[in-house]
Design a protein around this nucleic acid. Structure first.
Lengths: 221, 221
DNA sequence: TTTCTTCTCCCTATAAATGGGGAGTCCTTT
DNA sequence: AAAGGACTCCCCATTTATAGGGAGAAGAAA
């Protein structure tokens, strides 16, 4: 029999945390060591109380510092604790983004109740875990590559947006036009145009509306 | 001492329901009589088991039939049970839309834990209840009208979109351009242009991106 | 009946976005 | 040293969206 698994939960909705804690309390191998309502709280917690948690359950959408920011922080500071993303979104692009940032598991809120305990035990054991529906999508995306279920590679990055492209994308969602964006970012209009074009190409959308919808779906705004 | 308040909870995320139930179980005056994961389940439940619940806690975002659909169903079938919207969104337009559809309370998921019991008791008592942050926004919007806190009027509708405008808006979010929309709806290009213009005017946005963002925020798509 | 809204279409005109290229600098990685 | 990525800007041209106005037909509401 192994030791208890210590867990930290982060979600901006306290009610969700309450739910998760209620579920996790039903398992004697798991112990909740704290929770956070913002990404900033998470990083602070892990700075001050290192090694008090083995697994972090992390929501993507949080104020101040979001899940992506937390993952980046973990990666940068080489924090070894396992992270499981708990998300409302089952967009494959998000999942891949999170994977590339080093998360070890990804479960959707739809079926968190059923799978969260299994997910925690799996990643605590050094393996990766994904909700069945996520797994299905990942496998579909990877069709052609030889991978077995449950052991997905981390080394497939999505066509990541550069910093500048992200800057432009964010301003587009604010209804800025090209010249306003150029002014705001102190760039030439041609430059902003270039970024618009590369955004359209990378995200495979038709127009600015497509960019905005992508940004919303992927919680960039 | 009054009787127990019977409550039904609807949210597409089971984990949220678990959280709400956990919170509500701490109050002896409240009893949960069931829950639903889709809007369709809600209407079915209220068809088969009338009067088994006094208050319905309703999430806006649900598959099959969303919260708006449920409210419309309630209104149409003159179902008298009180509805409290539990939402992630604090957009004032959504709140007003919900109010016009007859909901009696509106709380955000951010502070549901603190206010949900108070909200249930308030609406069960025949009054309206809003999260403090929502109340603040409503009052700001109503600035100029004479209303006291906690007793807000139901009779202020937003500048409603017509059916055709909604048709066009939905297609815009799908990245259709004007001529594609015209083809799809069997309209002339000029006509679609007219709707685009009125959408921009009514929703007070600058461009198609603004329309798309509005549609997303207000769960039109 | 008159008024109002909605739906439909038109005109003119400008502003903005999209599509296809090229190209130089800087910096990091190989 | 070479290669690649990111950042910056430019040319060309076409398509699309936005802005302002007008107007008739049908139906509902006052």
């Amino acid at each position: 029999m192994k030791n208890k698994i210590y867990v930290h939960v982060a979600d901006d909705h306290k009610i969700v945390i309450d739910g998760i804690i209620a579920v996790l309390n039903t398992d004697k191998d798991i112990e909740i060591r704290g929770y956070s309502l913002t990404g900033k709280e998470v990083t602070t917690w892990f700075e001050n109380d290192q090694n008090q948690a083995d697994v972090l359950i992390l929501d993507i959408t949080m104020p101040i510092l979001d899940g992506i920011g937390v993952l980046k922080y973990f990666k940068k500071n080489r924090i070894r604790q396992k992270v499981i993303i708990l998300s409302s979104y089952d967009d494959i692009k998000i999942v891949q983004e999170m994977l590339s940032l080093g998360c070890k598991g990804y479960i959707t809120k739809n079926n968190a109740g059923e799978h969260i305990i299994e997910a925690i035990k799996t990643v605590a054991n050094g393996e990766q875990y994904f909700s069945p529906n996520i797994q299905r999508q990942l496998l579909k995306t990877l069709a052609g590559q030889q991978v077995e279920e449950g052991a997905l590679p981390e080394n497939f990055l999505i066509d990541t947006l550069t910093d500048r492209e992200l800057d432009v994308l964010k301003l587009i969602t604010k209804q800025f036009n090209t010249s306003e964006i150029a002014d705001t970012l102190n760039l030439g209009i041609s430059t902003v145009d270039t970024y618009r074009k590369s955004l359209l190409r990378k995200l495979k959308v038709k127009n600015a509306v497509g960019l905005a919808m992508y940004a919303v779906k992927n919680k960039i705004v």
